[in-house]
């Protein structure tokens, strides 16, 4: 039905000639844009409703005093649905530690939350298909679980700033007001509008780039440099991605362009993870609670794990 609508717009309403490169690109652009925005609206809305049942306060309670491994898995999963922005990283970190959430488990949450979320998954689904979206989600969770477990095993609690352990929260301010289902719907609607406002421009650019370079840049432009045959493709992509910072929506246009032009799947996924999971602003914020050594270890473990994932997928996809 969407296809027919795009067809109608381009050829009947705009009266463009069939079969030209421009009209074909426009039809593709209109179809993709509508499809992806429909997907985004519906899925963000549904996830927002689920999200309203998992405020950070509840997640904290669930993860408190959990054993490692189980705790890491739960934390990575909860990272998907618990709303969190890096500006709240410090109070969240302190709150988790104070509630007895193990350090490695806290990290699993902090890693998974910005990297694996509904926006990333929907955009990958809309542009590359559901298989790629699932693979990204699965590997993102895996990276969060593994990196968190390693940090837990290394017993790095001593490299957390001391003052964090001295903070005691006031028990009086324990619970948020209970929400009626109507309130959750309102929350979900607000949240969906909020997110769409933030990402729409990136999404349009991504779809536009897709159409444009599809026609004008040779298909195998990047194969030589970043195809599966080049053993340095993954580390170079990750090294470039770590200092770059963007949310999942912002990196999608670049990801689309790279993939179209022959960069291999594993390399692209590793690049996207490096961009979304590691960022300078977040490091600066986390520096308030972590000593520099722990930050360095965190970045190191993440880099190595993401490179590993990149190689793994280049080998099997």
């Amino acid at each position: 039905m969407l296809k027919a609508f795009a067809h109608y717009l381009v050829y009947d309403l705009f009266g463009m000639a069939q079969g030209s490169r421009l009209s074909g690109a426009l039809e593709f652009f209109i179809y993709d844009t509508i499809k992806i925005f429909l997907l985004l609206s519906v899925i963000i809305f549904v996830v927002s409703i689920i999200r309203s049942y998992f405020p950070p306060e509840r997640t904290k309670r669930i993860l408190s005093h959990k054993r490692e491994f189980i705790g890491n898995i739960l934390a990575a999963l909860l990272g998907i649905v618990t709303p969190f922005c890096s500006c709240s990283a410090v109070p969240l970190f302190i709150g988790f530690v104070e509630a007895g959430v193990p350090l490695g488990v806290t990290f699993s949450f902090l890693i998974s939350s910005p990297m694996v979320n509904e926006v990333a998954v929907v955009l990958l689904w809309g542009l590359f298909g559901w298989k790629i979206a699932l693979i990204y989600m699965g590997t993102g969770l895996l990276v969060a679980i593994i990196a968190g477990m390693i940090i837990g095993k290394l017993k790095l609690e001593k490299w957390v700033e001391e003052y964090v352990y001295t903070i005691k929260t006031t028990g009086a301010a324990a619970d948020l007001a209970r929400q009626a289902f109507k309130d959750r719907m309102v929350y979900a609607r607000e949240n969906t509008i909020d997110i769409l406002k933030k990402v729409w421009a990136y999404v349009i650019v991504a779809i536009g780039i897709g159409g444009f370079i599809h026609g004008y840049v040779p298909e195998d432009f990047l194969v030589l440099y970043a195809g599966p045959q080049n053993p340095f493709g993954v580390p170079v992509a990750v090294a470039l991605g770590v200092p770059l910072y963007s949310n999942a929506a912002g990196v999608i246009p670049i990801v689309y362009a790279l993939m179209e032009k022959g960069m291999s799947m594993g390399t692209v996924l590793a690049f996207m993870m490096a961009v979304t999971a590691l960022s300078l602003p977040e490091m600066i914020i986390l520096r308030k609670v972590l000593k520099i050594k722990l930050l360095a270890v965190f970045v190191g473990i993440m880099t190595v794990t993401i490179i590993g994932v990149g190689y793994l997928f280049n080998a099997i996809l």
Binding site: P55, K60, C85, S88, P91, I94, G95, T169, A174
Partner: peptide, 21 residues
């Protein structure tokens, strides 16, 4: 953090968290 706010902004009325995030 001491007030138990995990995501900002938070609103506290008479010592109880009424909103966060």
């Amino acid at each position: 953090a001491m007030y138990g706010i995990l995501s900002t902004p938070g609103l506290i009325v008479n010592g109880r968290i009424r909103h966060s995030g």
